[in-house]
Structure formats: C-alpha cells, structure tokens
Design a protein around this nucleic acid. Structure first.
Lengths: 294, 294
DNA sequence: CATCTTTAATGCGATTTTTGCATTAATAAG
DNA sequence: CTTATTAATGCAAAAATCGCATTAAAGATG
C-alpha cells in the first residue's frame, strides 16, 4: 500500500476509466492496471467492479475514496507544516530572561521576532534565582538570556552587549550627575535592592560594589523586581542600584547616574540544538545586540 | 514518500539508533539509512540531526513523529473499516417496503440483520404510491420490497413468498370463517380501504377483486395505512380487505377470513450492484421467505 | 596517547520490482 | 458480421531496492 497507489486509486475513482486516468497521471494503462491490482491484492478485496467495458467502485472502494481523500490531504497539510517548522517560522520557543531587560532589549527583540516569524509562538518566563543551565538542559526552555555567562560544554553562551550599572535616585535628590564622585557619598542613605544573599549574578555584583566601596548599605525594603524598586525610588522611599536598561521604563520621577561597573547580557542555548528557530533567534539577537547601545 | 518509509521513520524516531531499529524492522542498517535519506531528500529537509555517534530528531522531525503516528493509525483504521464493509457487516443500506409487511416479515428480517450484521445501519422508508424502480435507479434506496414485480433489465426482482388476501371484520361481526362463501355477502357493508384510484399494486388488486364480485364497495373512510385501517375495523367502523400479514399485528378485536386471492412479496435490487451487503441481505431474505408461511 | 569499539554512511553487485509496448480477450455499437 | 473500445497480460528492458563488506568519524579504554 503505497501513497502513490492510493493517489492512482483516487484519480481512477473519479474518472472510472483506466486509459484516461493513466494518461492524466502520466503512466501507461498497463501500469495503472497493475498498480490497482497490486493494491487490491494487498488489501484483500476489490476496489473496483470491472468488466471489459465498465468500471465502478465497490462499496468498500466508495468508502476508501472518501476517507483516503481526506487522509492524503492531511498528509500534505502535515508535510507543509513540517516544512514551515524546518524553515523556522512555525513552532513554539521558550525563552527565560532577567527582569532588567523587560523595558529595553526584550521588547525590541520581541518586535523583531513577531515581525519576522508571525506564526511563531513564544513562551516567556522570568525565573528568579533559578539555574538557567538546568532549565536549558531539562528542555524547560530553549533559550536563556542571563546576566552571567554559562560555562558548560553542552551550552553555548554568547555575550550580546554590556551596559552600565546606575545609581538610581529620586528626581529631587541632592546627588546629581554633576556632583557625583563615588558611592561613599550615599553610604548613609536607605537602599532598596534585591536581597544581597541571592545567588543571582546581579546580587553578587552588588555585593562586590559595596565591598569595594567599604560599606554595607542600609536596606529598608527588599524586592526582586526591578520595576517595583524603580517605583519605590520614585516615591522617595530610598535609592537603588540598577542596570542602565531600567531607564527605558521612562519613569519621570527618578534620575540615573552611571557608575563605572558594567553588567553583560548573555544569550545561552543548547549546543547543537537541531531546532532552526533557535539559530534564527540567536542571529536576530546578535544583530540587535550589536546595534543596541544603552 | 512511502508509507513504509514513514513507518521506518517512526520506528527510528522512537529508538534513535539505526542499527537497533534496522534489526527491529527486519532490514539491514544500510537499507534503513538509505530509506531515511531518500525520505529526507524528498521532503527537502532533515528529519534527524546525526553524527557518527548520536541521532536526534530535528524540530520538524519531532513534529512529524507526532502527526505521522496518528496518520498511520488513521490509515490502518480506515483499512479495517473498508475491510468490514467489503465483508458486508458495516455500512448503510436503504430499504423501501410496503406497510403491510411491517408486522410480520419486516420485523423478522430486521431481527436477522441486526443479529448477523450488528454494525450495519439500516434506513427504512415506507413510500406510498411511488415508483420503486426509480428509487432504486436513482440510488435513493438499495433494496426494495414490493408487492409487484419490477420488470427491468437493470433490476433483479425475486419473489420471496405469497400470502392470502383476507377479509377483515370486527370480532363480533356476523360473517365468520364458517359461514363465509364469497364477497357478495358483504356488498352492502361499509368498507375502509386505501383509495382505489391509487396506482399501487394492492389498490389494483382490490379493484380486480371488486370487479370480479360485481359490486362497488361503499367506502366511508379511506386510508393508506394498513394499521390505521385495522384499528378502525376493530372499532366497528366498517370492514376491510388486507394482506394476511396484518394478522401479526395481533389485534384481538378483528377477525381474518382468507380469500382465494394471493399477493406476493418481491425483493428488488440493482443488477450487478457491487455492494456485498445487498447480496447478503438478499440471501437472508430468500431463506426467510422460504420458511415464512403466513 | 595509542588502540579499540561503536555507529552511520557508502560502493558495489545481485535481486526484485516496476514500467511500457504490444497483444489479447471480451464486450458493445454500428 | 464487423469494427471499436477497453481492461488485462506476456515479455523484456529499466529502475529501485537490498544486503554485504567497508569506510570514516567519534568516543571509550587503559
């Protein structure tokens, strides 16, 4: 039972004429005759009732005409879907990202992806303090955007761009870009930051910054969410340190003062992932990262 | 794209190992390798990402694994259905019948059919005064049961049995089986019969009967439906003439008196109808007709 | 670091299957 | 009775499929 044989059968079941059908499907009449015979032999019953003069479908043949038609169409539809997936415009991709890029890089990337691959379904997750490496290796996500590089032979980690870390103060705060010298200036202020004991890269960076400047910050409020912190600073409840990207939130009640420290954004994916969507997204991200100057 | 190739692919997509899969499907490793290659060539994209050491599905391959599995199962299901139809236990058959057999022959036949072919769907229609021949030739019905023979080169008409025509009187009527001589006895009674001008065989027969006996019946009520007539007679509203089969209605308030006239029951179907269900039903009906002595 | 093992791909000849031409057989039409 | 139509079939050529043996590449082993 070949797909080709089924197609011959369907054509013949429409025309009910061996010679004309054979010509239509560009084979000889004898070939068509034998293909149908072979199909009938394999099925174990007749598809056509035929004498030297007339050809007509049997009841089983009539049934198969209906159902095989839909099957063949279905197979064709499946093939076309698979083709789209191969090209990389269809499917589902799961991306994990740090909250700090949700105002800048991530919307830009999403913009590109939804334009270039409109049929692509993107699942976004914002995991806190969870190992991106295991998420990738367990196939929970396909791509990870992270602040720290993942060093693993089975994962490729590529830096997309670097951005400054900024001191964030309320808009009417006494520290300005002009009078700012170093962080010791604000060592007695209230800080609103993510818990320093977190294992995330950014918490580690913060610990390092405070260490270098020789003081432990007073923390009145703690939050893992940068945009929460941003709003708290805007309401004059303290100051904070956040990546430059948060400027894209365009909050009018805060002021950003660039520090010398930098944070990177890495894109990570499974080495040799056969999914071409991943490769395409990586490419788009690299291009975007190069032109993206925060 | 062969069904066999798809099956090989599905097996390989489960095992992800050429040698083991080849052994499982009883072909050589080289053959499997080449079949998959040929499938990939035809599709135009890779199904497996493979090096000398590992085999894994591409995204498109994963998609096809899911969908082809259901397609192959579907094809198998379709084949089995078709097989059943060929054997003659599955399908739909449309049968037209005269109302007079709805108490006797028809229930017996239905009983046999539903026992022997439980998956068979039977459509019953009781057409009045309509040409069974055209219903058959227009494929509105597949089998017709009729009181008159259909004489046509494209239709086979076979007599199943003969039964007497009976005078039907209320249970306390003065005419009994013992004192009955001929119909002239009741020429002044009220008759409840189907309209004599109808073109059905039974109406023609009635006309003949009244003609032979030399009187025109007084008809107060007319009805095409035998069982309606039967109930009207039971309520003492008149007498009637019906086929013997109506005795099977087991109405306790009527008495049947056999006349000498007979009516036949014919089964009619399209000559050379390739539907094996028709042949089976004809066979069952012939056997039932022989043993059915009303 | 050299050797062994595993495993998918490939060259090649043998086998099997498929194909089309020409013909046959049966039927309907003129 | 003859002619035309049409599905099946014998046959030889062509194409495909198959499996053996081998290759090539990548761990695994010690």
């Amino acid at each position: 039972m070949t797909i080709q044989q089924i197609k011959y059968f369907l054509e013949l079941s429409n025309g009910l004429h061996f010679w004309k059908t054979a010509e239509k499907v560009s084979i000889s009449q004898s070939t068509l005759s034998r293909q149908i015979q072979s199909l009938e032999d394999e099925l174990g019953f007749q598809l056509f009732e035929r004498d030297k003069r007339n050809v007509k479908l049997t009841a089983a043949g009539k049934f198969l005409q209906d159902h095989w038609t839909t099957s063949i169409n279905e197979l064709d539809r499946i093939y076309k879907q698979a083709q789209k997936i191969d090209i990389g415009t269809l499917g589902t991709i799961s991306i994990a990202y740090p909250g700090s890029i949700s105002f800048g890089f991530l919307p830009s990337l999403m913009n590109i992806l939804t334009t270039e691959m409109p049929d692509l379904k993107i699942e976004l997750t914002e995991p806190i303090d969870i190992n991106h490496e295991s998420l990738l290796l367990n196939y929970h996500i396909d791509i990870s955007l992270s602040r720290d590089e993942i060093l693993s032979p089975t994962i490729v980690s590529k830096r997309l761009y670097s951005e400054s870390v900024c001191l964030v103060v309320p808009i009417n705060h006494w520290v300005t870009e002009e009078n700012f010298t170093d962080l010791t200036m604000v060592q007695n202020e209230n800080f609103i930051i993510s818990p320093l004991q977190n294992k995330t890269y950014f918490s580690t960076l913060l610990r390092g910054i405070f260490n270098t400047n020789g003081f432990n910050p007073k923390t009145t409020i703690e939050s893992d969410f940068g945009n929460v912190i941003l709003n708290l600073v805007a309401k004059d409840l303290g100051i904070s340190i956040l990546p430059y990207s948060f400027q894209f939130a365009k909050n009018p009640n805060v002021r950003f003062i660039e520090l010398t420290e930098k944070v990177d954004l890495y894109m990570n994916w499974r080495r040799n992932d056969p999914n071409k969507i991943v490769k395409r997204i990586v490419n788009y991200s690299e291009v975007l990262g190069e032109t993206y100057i925060p």
